[in-house]
Design a binder for these strands. Structure first.
Lengths: 168, 168
DNA sequence: TAAGATACGTCAGTCTTGTTGACATTCCAA
DNA sequence: TTGGAATGTCAACAAGACTGACGTATCTTA
């Protein structure tokens, strides 16, 4: 696992030891807690949870997206997403428009109120990310992104890439 | 750190734009799904969930840890952890020994059966991590770890560091 | 030694968020 | 035009988190 009968020095592969991999796993675990902590704190005061945050984020990112598309991005069942969407729509944060081409589809948009909350949540999350980025510099950030992308399932990477394009 | 009113071009700060930060947020989201997918698949066939996996992981990592310590690592309530521990102990995966110094404490250990399951779960999780690491190389991995560490809350970083030391 | 603090376990109840199952509507193609 | 597929909704349930209250054993300290 560490070497491989080639001329490669075993030193260069030390980052692939079980011990290093375990540390990476633990880093993911602890960091993800920090990653969600700030929005969670804001949401705790409302009747919303993390699921609402995720919906707001991706609707904001792809205005007019259909329920089905959102479903496959979030990786939950339509029934689960529906509960979240219903409350967001009832509260006037999200607007659901019947499709012009295909009337079975619903296209989702954030209302002005929805935009305000999305902004508040993502500001909090970006603040932490920004200060982490700033403290380690662009080279580390590039590595960070590379590893995360390599960890994704193919389906997720597809979604991720297609979101990336829109912003580029 | 990066710029600072010096002659640094604004190009060098492009990694701190809201757009780049959003991509980082999405990368975390999608990657975390991949991160938990493999163990989740294994656990789906049993009566256990992700919470059991986390307990097994950290008990394996710190044999003899107390309930209280595990509590603060996992960041859940004792009632929540207790449900998980009870089933693991009943099923003979975890052993709980009364403390020698302080008899109020319970020290937790994996049994042989517990070690087998922990190994199975962490193998699956490490496989994905290893292939990601290998595909991007050690420099990227270093950046990955740096960003994650910078994202943690101080409490979590404390736990993380103390686990690191044991393995070093 | 008595009083308070600490560590752990448990019961009961609630909330969020995931699940399946059943069903209505709409579209499309045989 | 009719049956199957796709889209979305409603209802019921389960896992896993939470709070609050309480009990017991043990330790520490006044």
């Amino acid at each position: 696992m560490v070497d491989s009968a080639s001329g490669q020095s075993s030193q260069a592969l030390l980052f692939l030891t079980d011990e290093q991999l375990r540390k990476g796993i633990e880093a993911m675990f602890f960091a993800y807690r920090g990653f969600t902590a700030d929005p969670d704190r804001i949401l705790a005061d409302m009747e919303y949870g993390r699921a609402h945050h995720r919906a707001l984020h991706f609707i904001h990112r792809s205005p007019g997206t259909t329920v089905n598309n959102l479903l496959s991005i979030l990786g939950v069942t339509k029934q689960s997403l529906n509960r979240v969407l219903r409350s967001l729509i009832e509260d006037g944060l999200v607007e659901s428009r019947v499709g012009k081409q295909d009337k079975r589809e619903r296209h989702l948009y954030l209302t002005d109120t929805g935009l305000v909350l999305e902004r508040q949540l993502s500001d909090a999350q970006r603040d932490r990310m920004r200060s982490a980025y700033r403290s380690v510099g662009p080279a580390a950030v590039q590595g960070f992104r590379q590893v995360l992308e390599a960890m994704m399932d193919d389906d997720m990477r597809r979604h991720y890439e297609s979101l990336k394009d829109k912003g580029a």
